[in-house]
Write a protein that binds this DNA or RNA. Structure first.
Length: 582
RNA sequence: GGGUGCGUAACUCAGUGGAUAGAGUAGCUGCCUUCUAAGCAGCGAGUCGUAGGUUCGAGUCCUACCGCACCCGCCA
């Protein structure tokens, strides 16, 4: 990629000017902070001033004298206190564009050493409905998985659903009490019932000591494999699974379900192993590992509890078992957990214990990829007025129907006739795209002020803005009756500033995706695609394509096609579809 | 009390130790017989929470403080 080439050249120039001992220093080549300084800038001269006992500008000019970049950019200029500025040559850009024109990957490299990578994301709880909080994990995790897959990694997408634990005792106990037939009949309830059932069960659990007791016994029965308890559990899971699947279908999310229950048989082994390693301690009746570097409210060492007083296991044990399984059985080299930032401490504890227990072999990387909470207008965790979280299903329905309303209003204004199939398809892609983009375009680590209006917005920095840029290119192709797949190569000629600006941005995809893969921040990709669309819209506004004489016409068609292909590829990595017309 | 994260334009947010801190929204002004106006151009809007420090250079790194959120023993 261009920036790497420049870094290499600067590195060589530094060695030539000041000797091999300066070969290891960072060249500090970065994209220019302002277009009037060119395309890239090198800041290294300022940082060398002290070491070399020379003025930065003098250092800069010695580096520039030794730079071999004549085929790439104009002669570098030295500006301000000692910046070296690079402006790429049109001829170089043309060659690069012609190269990626023939490449379905648009110049994006595959990694040289693919890694077996687990991405653990989404992870809703059985018998609860997915709410907007799950959107972040689901959308961000999916995008990260798509990006890693595209880079050539072997990705296992795991849905660590909450399908085990004490809440099932409560649910099954309530089923047994209120709907005894449910334990023996298949499909007697739908999820709507299940959610209200969860609430009722919770009420009973909170209010009634006797019910609490039978709920606990139900857990034991379930764990020991009692037929009817097992049946109730499966019923609950299946009902939930169906509802999750409809949402995953709408969002086009592919996931392998491997819930907490999967690791259940492995839990005793984990505790034994911890004991064998001499890490296990007993405290207030619970078996735990005391963490290093963590203290609790009273200032004493904080435990990670792996076996409760009643003998049951909890999520820490399950997470350790899952970690171990993914390394031993799945052969994962990298494990990524996409969960909210509130679990940071928990994962730090789990990773520490895994490390101390020798479960993390050399070369295996575990990474918590946190995202901020979804907050309501009060600045606290989001809840609706009735005290419930916003249902994901409702949000998606609202997004699609909002997009449909908007489209229908346009059709009236523009006096267009479209089929219901067209309208529904466009509404679907625009609505779902808008919701996904609204989430992904925000830095994942910051908390998220949820707003229906923002999620459903269709103007400005939103998915439809980029879809629209894409559609404009397809419109050119239709109007001119041109097959964009058959454009001649070696036909790019860049002259107008809008063309150059667009071309330079197209060529940065590889660089941006590299950063996104490194930092796992999809909002960087969103930013890139938004800027690409902005630059294309300016080009579209000021530079006629079809009416331009040759060779500009073909050259601009290539630029348009590359823009569209970049948008399509970039959006696909965000899990967003494109449209030919809208 | 301890830990983690966050305080940037009216609002929602970007911002990689570099030059004069950027978008979008909202408001105002122009631009559709032209490749789709879900667009383009322009205008106004800032003590980057406060105070120190490191550095040639700090919104960015360090320390303290203020404010907010989240986590801190048997939920995940």
């Amino acid at each position: 990629m261009i920036i790497e080439i420049l870094r290499n050249r600067v590195n060589q120039a530094i060695i030539a000017a000041f000797g091999a001992e300066y070969g290891e220093i960072d060249t500090l080549v970065v994209p220019a902070s302002n277009p009037r300084f060119g395309d890239y800038q090198c800041n290294v001269a300022l940082s060398l001033a002290k070491k070399l006992q020379q003025k930065p500008r003098a250092i800069a000019s010695q580096i520039a004298d030794n730079l071999n970049v004549t085929s790439i950019c104009q002669p570098p200029t030295i500006a301000g206190p000692g910046f070296i500025n690079f402006t790429l040559l049109a001829s170089y850009l043309e060659t690069q564009l012609e190269k990626i024109q023939r490449d379905p990957r648009l110049g994006v490299e595959q990694v040289k050493n693919p890694q077996k990578t687990v991405v653990d994301f989404s992870s809703p709880n059985i018998a609860k409905e997915m709410h907007v909080g799950h959107l972040r994990s689901t959308i961000i995790g999916d995008s990260i998985a798509r990006i890693l897959e595209f880079r050539g990694h072997q990705v296992l997408r795991l849905n660590h659903v909450g399908d085990w634990g004490t809440q099932f005792g409560m649910l099954i106990a309530y089923l047994r009490e209120a709907y005894p037939t449910a334990l023996t009949t298949a499909n007697a309830l739908d999820l709507g019932d299940l959610v209200s059932l969860y609430k009722k069960a919770k009420l009973r659990f909170d209010d009634d000591e006797e019910f609490r007791h039978s709920a606990r016994q139900e857990v034991v029965k379930l764990q020991s494999g009692a037929e009817d308890s097992r049946h109730g559990w499966e019923l609950l899971c299946n009902q939930s699974r169906r509802e999750f699947q409809t949402i995953y279908n709408i969002l086009d999310i592919k996931l392998t379900e491997r819930g907490e229950s999967f690791y259940n048989p492995l839990l005793p082994g984990i505790v034994e192993e911890l004991s064998r390693q001499g890490l296990l301690a007993e405290s207030e009746g619970a078996k735990c590992v005391f963490l290093e570097g963590f203290t609790n409210k009273t200032g004493s060492p904080q435990p990670l509890i792996v076996q409760k007083t009643d003998g049951g296991y909890n999520y820490a044990t399950t997470d350790l078992a899952a970690l171990n399984y993914r390394i031993q059985q799945d052969k994962a080299q990298k494990i990524i957990y996409v969960t909210d930032a509130g679990q940071t401490n928990h994962f730090a504890g789990v990773f520490q214990v895994a490390q101390r227990a020798g479960m993390l072999p050399e070369g295996v990387e575990v990474k918590h990829v946190p995202f901020g909470l979804v907050l309501g207008e009060n600045g606290k965790k989001l809840q609706t007025r009735s005290g419930e979280t916003v249902r994901l299903r409702d949000l998606l329905t609202e997004a699609v129907s909002g997009a449909k309303k908007d489209l229908e209003a346009r059709l009236v204004i523009e006096n267009r006739q479209e089929t219901p199939e067209f309208i529904n398809k466009v509404a679907q892609v625009v609505g779902i795209g808008a919701v996904k983009y609204a989430d992904l375009s925000q830095n994942r680590t910051s908390d998220y002020s949820f707003s229906y209006d923002k999620m459903l917005a269709l103007q400005g920095n939103t998915a439809p803005y980029m879809l629209y840029a894409y559609v404009r290119v397809q419109g050119i192709s239709r109007k001119g009756n041109i097959n964009l797949d058959n454009l001649p190569s070696r036909s790019v000629e860049l002259e107008q500033p809008e063309e150059l600006i667009l071309a330079k941005h197209i060529l940065r995809l590889n660089e941006v995706l590299g950063e996104v893969e490194q930092d796992l921040l999809p909002n960087r990709l969103c930013q890139y695609l938004f800027e690409l669309s902005q630059k294309f819209n300016l080009f579209y506004d000021r530079t006629p394509v079809l009416k331009a004489p040759e060779p500009q016409r073909t050259s601009r068609l290539v630029l348009s096609d590359l823009t569209a292909r970049t948008l399509k590829l970039g959006l696909s990595l965000l899990g967003i579809e494109v449209l030919e017309r809208m």
